[in-house]
Amino acid sequence: MGQAAAAAMTLGLQVSDVSGQKSVKAPAVPAYSTVGELIQGLLMRMGLARNDVEGRPLTYRVRLEREGRLLTGSEVVGDALKEDDHIVLQPNIDAGGGGN
């Protein structure tokens, strides 16, 4: 497979966490991966919490800034995203006292 073909199968993205304090460039995300797989890979690389302070797992979704919509985990990166898109990882957070 030539370099051009490989490049066509990847996308460059900019990714931020919900606070805006952590941002990364991901220059070559496989276009064939799902959004769910992308989230798992980004959590690890960005050092984002997988659990809340009570140890409960956090679930994340991706917001596509260009369209202002949330992507589903089953969407394919190459179909849903374009080169240089900016996405935000948005978690579900228990903000109440239930966990206390």
């Binding site: 919900v18 994340y60 979704r61 917001r63 202002g68 949330l70 935000v88 948005q90 978690p91 579900n92 957070i93 228990d94 903000a95 109440g96 006292g97 239930g98 966990g99």
Partner: peptide, 13 residues
């Protein structure tokens, strides 16, 4: 519910 509130991805959007 009566004991907790969960901020969802839609909340942040």
């Amino acid at each position: 519910d009566a004991t907790k509130v969960t901020f969802t991805a839609e909340t942040w959007s």
